[in-house]
Write a protein that binds this DNA or RNA. Structure first.
Lengths: 224, 224
DNA sequence: CTACGAGTTGACCAAATGGTCAGGATGATC
DNA sequence: GATCATCCTGACCATTTGGTCAACTCGTAG
C-alpha cells in the first residue's frame, strides 16, 4: 500500500533518478503556471516567491532551486508570452483579403487572451508599470511587427480597399479591445453580472468587434 | 538670513500654527499625488510606504501621520478616481443626438485618461489584480451607470438611429480603446518611437476613434 | 509664562522579503 | 558497495516591510 506507485500518483515528486529529466520538466511547468498567476495578480514587486511556492504546492527553496531567482523566473514568463504572441499572425501581404486578415487578427488575438488570461494580464501589468523589462522588445521586435503590418494596411488604403485611417492606431484599437476581456475580466464580470465569460460570449464579442471595426474602417472584401 | 521667511519659501513645511489647516491641505495633496504615481507603477502590494514618502519628499512617519495607513491611502485614491469618473458624462436621453453623445463620451473619456494618467493606471492595476477593493463599486454604481446608458442605446437602435449592436460591449470597446493610451503608454511610445504623446496626437486619436466607432455602429446623426 | 493643538520625525518592532547553503535523500551506473 | 547526478528542504541571513510611539518644535490663545 505504501509503495512507490502511490507516491508516484501523489504529486510530491520523486527524488533522484527518474531516468530522464521528467521531474524537472513537471516541476518547472507547475512552477511557471503558479508564477504566471501570482505575477499577473500582484505585479512583479507585489508577487512574492513564497506566494508562488505556495501556489505551486512546493517549498520556497525548491522554487529557487529550479528557477534561480525571482527576476529570472519573471523574465522567463515574459519571454514565453512574447513567443506566443509572435506565433500569432503570420506575415500578411497586399494580395490578401483585408476583411479576412482583419477578422483573423481579431479572432486570434481574442483567443490568445482567452487561452492565456494570466499571461495576458502579466504582460499588461508589465506595461502598466512602464515596461521595465520589455523596453527592448517594444522598441525592437514588436515595433517591426507592427510596422510591417501597417505598411500593408497603407497599401490597401491606396488601392481603395479601406478608409484612410492611421494603421498603427487601428492596430492599437484592435489590441486594446481584445486585451480588455482578459485584463479587465473583473470589470466585465462585475458590470454584466455574470460569473464567467463563456465560449459563447467570446464568439459574440469577436463577431461584434469584427463587425464594428471592419465597417468602421470601410473595409472592402476582395470577394465583393 | 536664517530667519523664518526663508524656511517659508523652502518647502519643508511649517510646524505648528499657520492659522488654518493649510499645512495639512498642502501635505495631503503632495502625498496623494506621490502615492498615485507609486501605486500606479507598482500596484497595491508592490508599492511601499517608504517609496511613496520618498516620492513626496517626506519622512515615512509623516506620510503615516496624515494618511493613517497604507490601505486607507489606497482606498482614498481609488475613491478620488471614481469621483472623477462619475462626474464624467451626465445623464443622456433618447432625445439626444447619438453622434453627439458618442463623440462626447469618447472625447471626455480620452481627456480623463489624459489628464489623470496615474489615476487611470491605478484603476487599471486594481482591476487587473481582480479588483479586491472595487468589487462593490463595479457591481453597484458602475453597473447602474452602464445599464442606464445601454438602455438609451437600445432605444436608438429601435428607432433605427444605429445598428443593432450589444450596447454594453460598445461601451467596453470605447472604454478599452481610450484607456489604452494612458495605461499602455509605454507600449504606444515604444512602438511609435515617440517619447511623449502630444496634445495633437490625442486630438488625432480622438478623431480616429470617433470616426471608426460611429461609422462602425452605423450611427445616424439626428441632424441628417 | 503656560497650555495646547498641530505638525514632525528618528528610533524601534515583529513580520515578511529574496536569497544562500549545507546536508540529506534517492535511483542509475560502474 | 561506491560514486554520481539530480533533487529536496529546513535553517539561516541581511534587508525591507507596515506600523507605533515618544519626544520634539512651533505659533497661538489664555
Amino acid at each position: 500500500m505504501t509503495d512507490m506507485t502511490e507516491t508516484e500518483t501523489l504529486q510530491p515528486a520523486r527524488q533522484g533518478g527518474e531516468s530522464n529529466g521528467a521531474t524537472r520538466e513537471r516541476n518547472e511547468r507547475e512552477i511557471l503556471e503558479a508564477a504566471e498567476r501570482v505575477f499577473a495578480q500582484y505585479g512583479y514587486r507585489g508577487a512574492s516567491v513564497q506566494a508562488i511556492a505556495e501556489e505551486a504546492g512546493l517549498p520556497k527553496s525548491n522554487v529557487l532551486y529550479y528557477m534561480g531567482n525571482k527576476r529570472g523566473l519573471y523574465v522567463r514568463l515574459l519571454e514565453r508570452m512574447m513567443a506566443r504572441w509572435n506565433a500569432l499572425l503570420d506575415d500578411i501581404s497586399v494580395e490578401d483579403d483585408p476583411a479576412d486578415v482583419l477578422e483573423a487578427f481579431i479572432r486570434s488575438k481574442m483567443q490568445l487572451s482567452r487561452r492565456h488570461p494570466e499571461g495576458s494580464r502579466l504582460f499588461a501589468a508589465e506595461i502598466l508599470g512602464g515596461a521595465p523589462f520589455l523596453q527592448e522588445y517594444l522598441r525592437g521586435e514588436l515595433r517591426e511587427w507592427v510596422q510591417t503590418r501597417a505598411r500593408v494596411f497603407e497599401q490597401w488604403e491606396e488601392r481603395g480597399l479601406m478608409d484612410p485611417v492611421d494603421p498603427v492606431w487601428l492596430i492599437f484599437l484592435i489590441w486594446s479591445a481584445t486585451q480588455h476581456y482578459a485584463d479587465f475580466e473583473a470589470q466585465v464580470l462585475g458590470i454584466t453580472g455574470k460569473d464567467e465569460i463563456s465560449d459563447d460570449d467570446v464568439e459574440r464579442i469577436t463577431q461584434f468587434l469584427t463587425q464594428v471595426i471592419l465597417k468602421g474602417c470601410g473595409v472592402q472584401s476582395r470577394k465583393d
